[in-house]
Design a protein around this nucleic acid. Structure first.
Lengths: 166, 166
DNA sequence: GCTGAAACCTTCGGGAA
DNA sequence: TTCCCGAAGGTTTCAGC
C-alpha cells in the first residue's frame, strides 16, 4: 500500500465529495490495506496514478487515517473482555477531565464513549483474565470517583470489524 | 509494510513464544503498519532480515492478522453510534444461529458479544443518524425475536483503539 | 481528469561473515 | 544469527493526452 509520509490531516471536516470510485477504494483499503496500488487499481477498475491521487486526497482530508494491523487477542493471552457501564454523580469539567485522562492512559481500555441517558460512560476493556480486570477496576475507582459501575463480561466475540459500510 | 501473500493462519492457538523483540515489533505494527521494514528494524533495534522473519512467523501463527486502514467515521457521515443491549427469552441453538447470522450480515454492526449475566448480547452499531438506527432496529426485531432491547446513545467517542497492550 | 513510462525505493531471499 | 547485495517488484512523479 501507499506509504504514509507524515502528512498532517488538515481540516478533517472534509468538504471532499466522494464519488463511487473513491468509495470502492475505501472498501478495498478496509478489506486489506496491504495490497499493492496495482491490485487496488484493478479491483476498482482504474489505474495506479488516479487511485494514488485519490488516496492521497482522502488522506490529506483526514478521511483515511492510520494503517494498522489486527492482532489475535486470544493468541496473545487477552482472554477476557468486559463492557463497563459507569455512572457518576459528578458532572463538573474537572471531574470529566480526570476521567478522560484516566481512560486515555490505561492501555486496557480499547474504547470509551460518553453517553446520553442515565449511564454516563461505557468502556470496552480487554485484559488477560478476571484478576487483571479487578486490578484495572481498583485502579480506576481509586483515581476517579464514580457512583456506580456495572461490568458485562463477554463470553464470546461474535463479530468484530473496524470497517464502515461506505 | 511487508505484504500478506495469502498465507493461511494455521493453528491460531499459537505455541509460539514471543520475546521482547517480537513484542516491540507488534507495538510498531499496531502504531503504524505502513512503515517500511527498515523503519521497524531501527525502532526495535534490529535489522531487516530478522525482523522480516519474525513478522512472517507471527503471521503464520495467526497472531498478526489483516492489515487495515482506520477511516474517520464522522467525516464519512456516520454520526451516530449506539451500544445495544439485547435480552432474549430464547436460548435454543436455532435462535442463536439466526441471531448470529442477522448480526454478521448487517454492516452497521461493528461489534457483537455474547455476554454472561442477565443481558444476553451487546452490539456496537454505527449509523448515519437516529433514523438509520431505527431502520436497523426494526429490521433486527423483525428478523429475530428478542425480549428486550436497550440502546445507549454515544454523545462522544473519548477513546478508540484497536491496539492491544502487548 | 486519465495513461504510460521513468526514477526511485523496498522487499525478499541467497550467500558470506 | 546478522549483514550485504541484487533482482523483482513496489511507489511516486511527470509529461502528454
Amino acid at each position: 500500500m501507499v506509504e504514509s509520509p507524515s502528512r498532517k490531516p488538515e481540516t478533517a471536516q472534509s468538504l471532499v465529495r466522494l464519488d463511487d470510485v473513491d468509495r470502492r477504494i475505501l472498501r478495498e483499503l478496509q478489506r486489506d490495506a496491504g495490497q499493492s496500488l496495482e491490485e487496488i487499481a484493478r479491483a476498482v477498475g482504474s489505474s495506479k496514478t488516479p487511485v494514488w491521487n485519490r488516496i492521497r486526497k482522502m488522506r490529506d482530508a483526514g478521511i483515511v487515517g492510520k494503517q494498522t494491523v489486527i492482532l489475535d487477542a486470544e493468541a496473545l493471552g487477552f482472554e477476557a473482555c468486559f463492557f463497563v457501564l459507569v455512572r457518576t454523580s459528578e458532572h463538573e469539567a474537572a471531574w470529566q477531565a480526570d476521567f478522560l485522562e484516566a481512560v486515555r492512559e490505561r492501555p486496557e481500555v480499547q474504547e470509551a464513549h460518553r453517553l446520553a441517558g442515565d449511564i454516563d460512560y461505557i468502556l470496552k476493556v480487554r485484559v488477560k483474565n478476571a484478576r487483571a480486570y479487578d486490578a484495572f477496576y481498583q485502579a480506576l475507582i481509586s483515581q476517579v470517583k464514580v457512583h456506580n459501575v456495572t461490568a458485562l463480561l463477554s463470553m464470546e466475540e461474535i463479530k468484530a470489524t473496524t470497517a464502515l459500510p461506505v
